[in-house]
Amino acid sequence: MTVDLSIPSLLWMYALMLVPLGIFLYLRLGVARALLIGMARMSVQLVLVGLYLKYIFQLNNPAVSLLWVAVMLVVANLAVLSKAGIRRGVFFWRSLAAVAGSTLFVSGWFILVAIRPEPLYDARYMVPIVGMVLGNCLRGNVLSLERFYSGIRQNENEFTTYLMLGATLREAIRPYLRRALKAAVNPSIATMATMGIVSLPGMMTGQILGGALPMEAIKYQISIMICIFTAMVAASLANILLSLPVAFDDHQRLREDIFS
């Protein structure tokens, strides 16, 4: 088991933050306030999550766990749309379907096919795995949506040319779809390629600190990386494809009112 961190120990960890804070103030970067707010938010949110999870794990009720998963999905979806610079009101349900469908399918595969815990709906597996997959495929979704629509917007003449040359909407968007997906997956491929050498991944480190054997932790780490990557690619593609009917008008013009 892990050595429990006492409150004074945690305060010593907060003390370490004086280093970046001091650097920011000395260099007048103007981000000290943002750092303090970010730190405060992180602390409060994690304390709350710690409390929620404690009760969710104690209850181990599938309905309660699924409700928590639904909350995570909705919040994640709102974050994706907001950061991608497109209007939540227009895309909310479509994006939710893409993000939730991909995350739940991949997490379900991991839990039901590979881990098979007893009971299958064990909250200790369901909640952290869905959370980890979801959290990690957010960036890919934001990047792909943002790159896709900004790509078409910035290359309107090129896009129009494709249509004029007889391309259907699906054919005309293909170059932008390719670029958007590449932008989304490239960082993850680079991360995977250096994992274990340049970085020790969080999940594996956490499990080892929690007392797991390194080889056991590695198997989980490999599985979660595959889950994250698959969910990210599927969600990014589904998100773009599902958004097409509302993003273009009936003459295949990109609607300007979709941008926030």
């Binding site: 129009t160 040319t161 494709y162 040359l165 007889g166 391309a167």
Partner: peptide, 26 residues
Amino acid sequence: YIGQEPVLGAESVREALLLPFTFKAH
């Protein structure tokens, strides 16, 4: 439609000329 600055939409001139024929319609 031929504008002042037409967009060819492909890497080489040959690819640009043959681009429409990669679409289902042609």
